[in-house]
Design a protein around this nucleic acid. Structure first.
Ligand SMILES: [Mn+2]
Ligand SMILES: [Mn+2]
Ligand SMILES: [Mn+2]
Ligand SMILES: [Mn+2]
Lengths: 220, 220
DNA sequence: AAAAAAATTTAGGCTAGTCTAAAAATGTAT
DNA sequence: ATACATTTTTAGACTAGCCTAAATTTTTTT
């Protein structure tokens, strides 16, 4: 049978919290991410377990089943394809599309997703640098580093972000930090890990660790 | 406050059943169109009336208020714009888009609708020939005739359809009846009102009254 | 190993939207 | 005008998804 809007959101969030290592996800973590209370999460976990979408033993945390993984990846695929559509075709900024995609990701037609994918020329990454699962649910797992983990004197390419909130993305825009830009670490301050960086061999800029911890890069 | 998915569907259906003459809509008619029972409709009508979206007095039928009309037209605008997108940009057939648009019409962002409208070059009509309300809620009311009301010997242009179901639209496709085609009534059979027509001065075709009652035309 | 703290589940309850069955209002036909 | 038929509303109940408060289990500290 069909999964509800709410069930899909739970599966997607379990997937995200579970990470590439497929860690167990706690009831409280889910309550926080879904903006509900732990008691409500427990109810939903029982339901998802009954449907065979998660492995769940009381007090033990949850993990997605094969089938739950498939559903989650499909929702993520739709979310990221719609984000590409909104940015590439409708001209939205990367800071404006998350909430809209949060709704569009639940539109159910498979034909729609596949035609949208073709219309967008089968994009590999969404506007935030996140990889887009293919129709079979395969998703490449690029292993980027956090900008905060790059040592002084090194260069790196900006490949993604860990935060998707509007204020953070707008802050990056104002700083001139966009996907693909080249960043050189000129100085790192010991006491607060703030850094002086140079972008595309041009202007230099101070950034806090708050920022550098949420920017994903590939070392050059 | 925000209107729910369900409330929006009720308002849209009331609008459609109410027609250009703004007739009262009965509880039973709504039950049929929403595929629910009359008792459920009564509950919803009380709620919509409380929100000021409909005029409702017990046992008297309903009509939209100014405000309800606005909401309904916005939903219809979104529905029809998404249908244009699906056909023009994604290559769907006109017989495949109704159900998908039925979901997309409830995505709430105003910015999204206006950007979509611009992306599509501000279309005036949807793939079924229905007019698209503008951002202010103005909708032209073209007064087409039913093909069944055109007399023998006359010619007309096909401008729209009254049925939007997949089987009906596919039947039109197979018959070569598409929006914009020229139709000449060659013969009308007295006993069952079936007709012999000629399309674009080329092939001739027999159609039942079932079909001709659901095709909208403009007399030439 | 017992006590305290934290996490989780259970119990009971709420709203939106639906249902069936019964009651009331309206409309129609003698 | 009265009776019958139809339409609509009310009454009471159900599910999904959420809540608070209390009970239980697990984890951490002493
Ligand atoms: Mn979502
Ligand atoms: Mn994204
Ligand atoms: Mn709808
Ligand atoms: Mn249409």
């Amino acid at each position: 049978m069909q999964n509800s809007f709410t069930e899909e959101n739970y599966l997607k969030i379990i997937h995200n919290l579970s990470g590439r290592e497929d860690l167990e996800v706690s009831t409280n973590a889910l309550a926080e991410s879904t903006a509900t209370r732990a008691a409500s999460v427990t109810d939903m976990l029982r339901k998802l377990a009954d449907k065979g979408l998660i492995h769940y033993k009381k007090y033990q945390g949850v993990r997605l089943t094969e089938q739950g993984q498939k559903v989650a990846l499909k929702v993520i695929r739709k979310h990221r394809l719609w984000e590409v559509f909104l940015v590439e075709k409708l001209g939205f900024g990367w800071d404006e599309v998350h909430d809209i995609a949060e709704e569009l990701e639940h539109i159910p037609s498979d034909r729609l997703v596949e035609r949208l994918d073709a219309f967008l020329d089968h994009p590999q990454f969404d506007p935030h640098g996140d990889p887009i699962p293919d129709a079979k649910g395969n998703m490449p797992v690029p292993d980027y580093m956090k900008l905060s983990d790059i040592a002084m004197g090194n260069k790196a390419l900006m490949m993604g972000v860990l935060e998707h909130t509007t204020p953070f993305l707008q802050h990056l825009d104002r700083s001139g930090l966009t996907l693909g830009c080249e960043i050189e670490i000129k100085e790192v301050n010991e006491f607060d890990k703030s850094a002086l960086i140079q972008i595309n061999n041009q202007r230099t800029l101070f950034i806090s660790q708050e920022v550098s911890k949420n920017v994903l890069v590939q070392r050059l």
